[in-house]
Amino acid sequence: MSDEKWTVTFIIHRQKGPDSQPHFDEFTIEIHPEEFVLDGVEYIWAYKDRSLVFRHACHHTTCGACGMRVNGVEKLACMTKIADVTQDGGKIKLEPLRNFPIVGDLVVDLGPLYRKMHEVHAPEVIPLCASPWEGEGIKPPQETPKREDGEEYIRLPDCIECGLCVSACPTAASDAEYLGPAVLAAIHIQGIDENPDLLALADSREGVWRCHSAYECSAVCPSNVDPAWRIMDLRKQIIARRLKFKK
């Protein structure tokens, strides 16, 4: 691996407090193309501008804190390689997620999403059999190994509540009450047959019927949740119920 660094200009959205006028600041730094956008942001904070605020925690896509828009597209900054979004001498534009209240600079308040996930009691850990194997889309695994005590392994669910899907969704942009992709996916994973309260929510005005099929949620999801597929599958299930195919 070459040790040669690139010169990259970060153009970063700045805003102090929710009510002030936003502007953009430019920072030109030397950075290795194999490093990640989040490393660049942290470098800028460490050496260029201590007033910069940004969210981050795990730096390896398990926490979902570092969602932002990189050149206009929703990304987790921790897994977005510099080389994949710019070139030597190029620029990277960073903006906060859309459709959430701004806290400052690159930070938004994900509270509304967490509140809705709480309302639909999205599980924090799930049995391994409820999560698909890699590379097989959203199908459940063929064979789930059991633990030595006969019990199933459990794991953290795919959805990391990063908010990228809500930021990318044009319906969420025009309807504050829309449950949104992540929340509908959380309903789908739990199952509407088992959860009448979730069926009522999914089959409501702000549920699956509000989706306008832009598929942006699945395009930006960094974590294999595929909310768009899940919303469409919920529609199918609900239609089947109405037509009495299902009791």
Partner: peptide
């Protein structure tokens, strides 16, 4: 100075 667990804690092995 940052969000919750942005330093060593967030970046733990787990």
């Amino acid at each position: 100075r940052g969000p919750i667990a942005n330093g060593t804690s967030g970046r733990t092995h787990g």
